[in-house]
Simulated assay, not measured.
Amino acid sequence: MMDHARDLASVREATDRLLTAAARLDNAAVTQPSRLPGWTRGHVLAHLARNADALVNVFEGRPMYVSGDARDADIERDARRPLQTHLADVRDSADRLQDAASALSDWSRTVELRNGVTDDLSRVPFRRWIEVELHHVDLGIGYELEDLPEEFMEREIAFLVDRFAGHPDVPLTDVTDGTRAWTTGSTPSGSGVTVTGTAPALLGWLAGRRDGAGLRVEGGALPSLPPL
């Protein structure tokens, strides 16, 4: 069962870590490429701010985004701003998210997110935690998958494994870090594969942040995962 209050506290802590690290940049660094293809660090920071406001919309019963095109346009519009403007926007939008969450009394309802995805409202704070942690890594400023909180890594691996469960393009796959094990994919005509590695390596592969180098695969090739 999700603990939305605890996850909201984790979101605040992760946001503070990101802001502290990003504050060491300068305006030139914001314009440099992030680890996400086609996005600068400014695009990543702009996305984090606009995602927070989009989740405020979800909390308050409005559509998450007006449209996909509007979402993309907002990120593109804001990406080229100076560092201090980005930092203030990420901070202020994060505060608005926390304020909107604190006004909620019913966390049991189902909400619609982007692209028609639905989820329990109580799971939305964890989704925001994912955004902050992974995009901190995407900034390429010294925060790596190995630096992620252990609880977050375990939960995010489980979250992604569940996302690919039953997917027709993903073969039946056992995923393990040697201590914990998960199963994902769909049942193929033959036997499935087993993928073994450290938690950061597994998370990097599942989240599309790493190519799977360093993972041990038995029973076939490393599955090619669809984009998130």
Rank of each mutant, 00 (worst) to 15 (best):
M1Y: 11
D3K: 08
A9K: 13
A9P: 01
S10K: 12
V11F: 11
V11E: 02
D16P: 03
R17F: 10
R17C: 15
R17K: 13
L18E: 07
L18V: 11
L19M: 07
A21W: 01
A22N: 01
R24W: 06
L25P: 02
D26Q: 10
N27W: 09
V30R: 02
P33V: 10
S34R: 06
L36P: 01
L36T: 11
P37E: 14
H43D: 09
V44Q: 00
H47I: 08
N51F: 04
N51D: 11
A52Q: 08
A52E: 02
D53A: 13
D53N: 13
D53S: 14
L55Q: 14
V56E: 04
N57I: 09
N57Q: 11
N57F: 04
E60F: 08
G61P: 03
Y65F: 15
Y65L: 10
Y65W: 13
V66G: 12
V66R: 15
R71F: 07
R71E: 11
D74W: 12
I75C: 02
E76Y: 05
L83F: 05
T85A: 15
H86P: 06
A88W: 01
V90M: 08
V90I: 11
A94F: 06
Q98W: 10
D99S: 14
D99P: 07
A101F: 04
S102Y: 03
S102H: 11
S105H: 14
W107G: 02
W107F: 05
W107Q: 02
R109C: 08
T110N: 11
V111E: 08
E112T: 15
E112M: 11
R114V: 14
R114E: 15
G116W: 00
G116Q: 05
V117E: 13
D120G: 13
L121V: 04
L121N: 08
L121H: 06
L121T: 03
S122P: 04
R123Q: 15
V124L: 04
R127N: 13
R128M: 02
E131A: 07
V132A: 04
E133S: 12
H135W: 01
H135R: 06
H136I: 06
L139Y: 00
I141W: 02
E144G: 12
L145M: 03
L145T: 04
L145S: 05
D147L: 09
D147W: 00
L148S: 11
P149E: 02
R155T: 11
F159N: 14
L160H: 07
L160D: 01
D162T: 14
R163E: 12
F164R: 07
A165G: 09
G166V: 09
P168F: 09
D169H: 09
V170K: 07
P171K: 08
P171R: 09
D174V: 15
T179D: 14
W182K: 08
T184K: 10
P188R: 09
S189N: 15
G190N: 09
S191H: 14
G192R: 00
G192W: 00
T194A: 12
V195H: 03
G197L: 02
G197K: 05
G197Y: 00
T198V: 02
P200N: 02
W205P: 01
L206P: 00
A207W: 01
R210E: 13
R210Q: 13
G212R: 02
G212L: 07
A213Y: 10
G214Q: 06
V217G: 04
A221L: 12
A221P: 05
L225S: 01
